[in-house]
Design a protein around this nucleic acid. Sequence first.
DNA 1: TTGACATATGCCGGAATTGGTATATTATTG
DNA 2: CAATAATATACCAATTCCGGCATATGTCAA
Lengths: 120, 120
Amino acid sequence: MTVTSAYHMQAQILRILAHPVRLRILGILARQEACVCHLETLLHRSQPYVSKQLAVLRDAGLVTDRREGTLIFYRAANENLVAWLNMGRALLRDESGLPLPDAPASPPVVEGCPCPRCQR
Amino acid sequence: MTVTSAYHMQAQILRILAHPVRLRILGILARQEACVCHLETLLHRSQPYVSKQLAVLRDAGLVTDRREGTLIFYRAANENLVAWLNMGRALLRDESGLPLPDAPASPPVVEGCPCPRCQR
DNA sequence: TTGACATATGCCGGAATTGGTATATTATTG
DNA sequence: CAATAATATACCAATTCCGGCATATGTCAA
């Protein structure tokens, strides 16, 4: 018997999104598929930490995962949502007038990342 | 020394927004200015409860208030933000396919509301 | 099967959020 | 000034969220 107005559902999703690292992860995964270890190096966070945030996003249906051997690649599940979030950040910049930086778009190959996409 | 990326700021605002009643309040205040007691009757919530949610929104700069005698009228401070939120809910409906209802737009005069706008 | 690697999950203490009740503040009226 | 009405704030217990560390799971290679 869960009451489900649009406001409740929206609040649920917003709670998931209201986290800087999860937002950043979504930003990354919107541009490129990435495995956990790749995100680890990009974010300078521990493996369990990254894995847990990904689990939160996955449980909410915001990212999907795909296994390739022992690696698991994640990607943003909903392009429109990401676009909406980007729009929100743009709004934020406009209104605040501050030069709020997004984390810079990461190159597809990251120094020090052990994943096969980055090692050759 | 507060680290402020766009992600951090966005997460802060999203935390404020990630609450069904606050979302609903913003939805109401986007359409019409309203005093606390008016919101009380619309939302069927206690005065301190409504007042507190309004304080949260006010502290975040999302609503402004205006005193008129002993009444205090609130309104949404940022039209673009509200539009953005509405867009988010629309997205939600499209993606989910569910007929998620917004709370119906409330008539300017509400049965049983003690505020002068509703009493004549 | 054993070991190594990538990832996931469980558990914990601390911090923040939630909603309720009691009380304080501010302005009006008499 | 006192009484009242509208609103705000303080305080509290319950829940949720957070990030860290330990450990479990799953896959591959030897």
